Amino acid sequence: MDGTNFRRAIARTRLAPVAAFPKRLMRVAKHDARVISVSAKWLLTSREHHNYTYDLTKLSREHLAWFVSVTCDVPVKQVRTYLTEIEEDEPLRQHIEQATAASDRRGLADRRVRYARRIGWYAIVRATRPKHIVETGVDKGLGTCVLASALLRNAADGEPGRVTSLDINPEAGYLAKSEPWASVVDLVIGDSLASIKALDRPVDLFLHDSNHSTGHERREFQAVSPKLAPGARLLTDNVTVTNVLAEHAEKTGRRFLAYRETPAQHWYPGDGIGIAW
């Protein structure tokens, strides 16, 4: 009996789990060694403790392009152009690096600029040309800068817009307080639900990225519903944790789709984008 037939014979006996154990162990060990290596490198080189930043794998970036193409009804080639725009925006990149280095919070932030799924936010804004975006949850303002950069490009094309960025932390948004990005940003400090209820103009694009509890996320979508403009889109940065936006979409007669990112060379499994339209 040759080796192949012998292995097949063993596979049909009670010894199969024992015989397969060394190979299974090697596969697990190889996987864990890679994860430990990536994690150790991150611990030694990164300063971040939350809102992790990273690049996407090439495959994940391509899936993101198709996600935006389908949900915004634009050709995927155009979406790829938008993704390249934000990735090659050198003035924004230099600003973020310099502002991070000068910030009081530089001890908890990486200077290297990596947008992850936020390039998808940018592409959605470029594709849909919203007049008014509302973003809840700002932190240092990286995502706000990405949204503002898209709005500035839209304005150059003759379709201006603004982003209202809501956060309860008075120190939030330091990256978005410089020109030209600040020229299209209204930073509001306070409770997101109260701030949403106080909005005085229709919302074309709403992004939940604040308190990620299920109850709060649900209350934000409920609060913004009467403020939405016709054809408005709803986004959540919490799609890998809750099903809130999908449930809201079903109740309100919208379509829903989710994208999950894959970080390149990072221990964190990634977040995603949920969109209802």
Rank of each mutant, 00 (worst) to 15 (best):
C145R: 11
S213K: 03
K140D: 09
G158M: 12
P170E: 11
L187G: 09
G173N: 04
T136Y: 04
D191I: 07
S210K: 09
A148F: 08
S183W: 08
K177Y: 07
L175C: 05
E159S: 12
H216Q: 15
L235T: 05
R117Q: 14
A223D: 08
A229D: 01
D157C: 11
L235P: 04
A102T: 09
L175P: 01
G143I: 06
I168E: 06
S213Y: 01
D200F: 00
R106N: 12
S165C: 15
L142P: 00
A155K: 09
E135M: 11
D167S: 08
L207A: 10
T100Q: 06
D104C: 00
S213G: 12
L175V: 02
A223W: 04
I196R: 04
H212V: 07
N169H: 06
L152Q: 03
N169E: 11
L175K: 03
L147A: 05
G173C: 10
R112I: 12
L147R: 06
C145K: 04
H216T: 12
I124D: 02
D157A: 15
V163L: 13
D204N: 14
I124S: 02
L187M: 15
G231C: 09
G137A: 11
A123N: 05
V203F: 02
R105W: 02
W121N: 06
L193W: 01
D204L: 05
A223I: 11
A101Y: 01
K140F: 14
A109Q: 15
S210H: 13
I189K: 01
S195F: 03
R114G: 00
I196K: 04
T144F: 07
D209A: 13
G137D: 07
V146I: 15
